[in-house]
Amino acid sequence: MILEVKNLSKQYSCGFFGLNKINAVNNVSFYIDDGEIFGLIGESGCGKTTITRMIMGLLKPTKGNIIFENENITRLNTKQWRPFRKKIQIVFQNPQMTFNPRRNLYFSCAEPIKIHGLSKDMNEKAMIRHMIERVGITEEQLKKFPHEISGGQAQRLSIARALSLKPRLLVCDEPTSMLDVSVQAHILKLIKEANEKYGVSMLFISHDLEVIQAMCSRIAVMKNGQIIETGYTNEIFNNPKHEYTKKLLSSYIKI
């Protein structure tokens, strides 16, 4: 077990004096085994992204615990998080918004290497060359700015950047929802490869059932901030138990 999420809740206060409480995530528990791809599906606004933000330490949960490799990472400050940044990485939904718009892509790619001091025995340029080669990006393209490359290229680069830290867990937050089918295939291949070759465990979030079915071994179905059903992908796809899951699966159009 690489990651365990226990009774996680996030409550937002709004309205007059914060008296209105909204449960974005409500008592969610799941675990991810070593080397597996765990899928999280649900409609937009059901709290999927809130969960990823809490796992990444970008948001403090109201209740519950997140345990990564037997260490509780729920309430760490920025400094305490530092060593875990190397082990948990994320790929965001909107690839062009992932990089610093004012700096060229080389700067963004060199950033993790500089921060974590990875270039001790190898020089930085060689490391970056090695890292972008895997995803089919040339050094020429690194001189450009984020808005000058296509969405597919940006997403491949952000995967390369995440993998350059050799993480144990990769969180993929709707990595292909903004991309075309043909570009999507390339991204999915890279993610799958990272899982099979390097044994990176994954939390894969998507609303696209087709992608989820192709990628994940186990899935959880979310609705209104709660997990309503979880199990092996094949079981849920062939034999859904919850009404909502059945409804969700009926939107799957086979070709």
Partner: peptide
């Protein structure tokens, strides 16, 4: 078109769908 694609691009496009094994078409 979908079941018996004739042009290589159509074939590639259909093969790149996740349920068809997301085969990558090289290049851009």
């Amino acid at each position: 078109v979908l079941n018996n694609p004739k042009h290589p691009y159509t074939k590639g496009l259909i093969a790149s769908m996740p349920s068809r094994g997301f085969h990558v078409m090289e290049g851009y």
